[in-house]
Design a protein around this nucleic acid. Structure first.
Lengths: 138, 138
DNA sequence: AAGTATTTAATAAACATTATATAATAATAA
DNA sequence: TTATTATTATATAATGTTTATTAAATACTT
């Protein structure tokens, strides 16, 4: 599901969530920086231009947006929680050398298995790890 | 890669890691309890019969075993790190209702995408979430 | 403008994980 | 066996992340 800005506003409305200045800024940041940032990164970047923003608010907002499926958690590494705006089916590749996370599109719907007949599947996450071409060169 | 007990011992030897009593117990627990336990669960269960075992040791051992690919981290949820003995290709399904994690076999090697040409892929993790048949009944 | 609900921020608390240093254990060699 | 060394385990403290709590600020309604 690709999420346009209008879709987001609709979802916020449906859930009676106001689009505060803080929430708008965090959403904008996620939309413009598709680097799957951590809470820390989001906070530090926004804090520069928005010094009153608190980290608690970043946590609260991300949890809120995750709950209504505007944002998704990228759990590719156990010691860092990253966040991504929900977009159509794609997987995540993390380079073990430079740490960068790449998106790759993949038809997740086609992944099924008879073993899961009778299971209701709400979410599918595909995580790959390895070395990216840039790091292979070096 | 399916890991037999002998394979494990070999890997420990290759890496000059002694099979201490603590490590054996933790390995045994993982082999016999394929429930993808958390550190806490492993610690609490083993602590009953082995009161001197410390949680630090559980952490150290799991990190050690992860490094040499005897154990793998199951990162399906961001607020809990779980552990699994490495076995042949399979994915993990977490029931959002009862919390149980199910294994399902899946041919992970067949998942590829042209977008990752030039990438060296070392690890593939497949995580599904939803509701399991038992919970659908209720 | 007053009253109400929502949102934010600061602080403290909870929790998980790692670092450090000491004690215990096992391996090796004299 | 004993002494020496390396490895491992433990306890404690430290770190880091996330959540709870509460009071202040803001926005909405009438």
């Amino acid at each position: 599901m690709n999420t346009s800005f209008e879709d987001m506003l609709n979802k916020l409305n449906e859930n009676n969530i106001r689009l505060s200045h803080q929430r708008l800024k965090i959403l904008e940041y996620l939309a413009e920086n598709r680097c799957h940032p951590t809470v820390d990164k989001i906070y530090n970047e926004l804090h520069k231009d928005f010094p009153t923003l608190s980290k608690t608010t970043v946590y609260n907002t991300l949890n809120l947006l995750t709950k209504i499926n505007i944002v998704r958690i990228v759990n590719i590494e156990d010691n860092e929680t990253r966040y991504d705006i929900c977009t159509e089916n794609h997987g995540h590749f993390k380079c073990e050398s430079c740490g960068r996370i790449y998106d790759f599109s993949i038809d997740i719907d086609s992944f099924t298995t008879k073993e899961l007949d009778g299971f209701k599947i709400n979410e599918k996450d595909i995580y790959f790890k390895g070395i990216c071409p840039k790091c292979i060169k070096n």
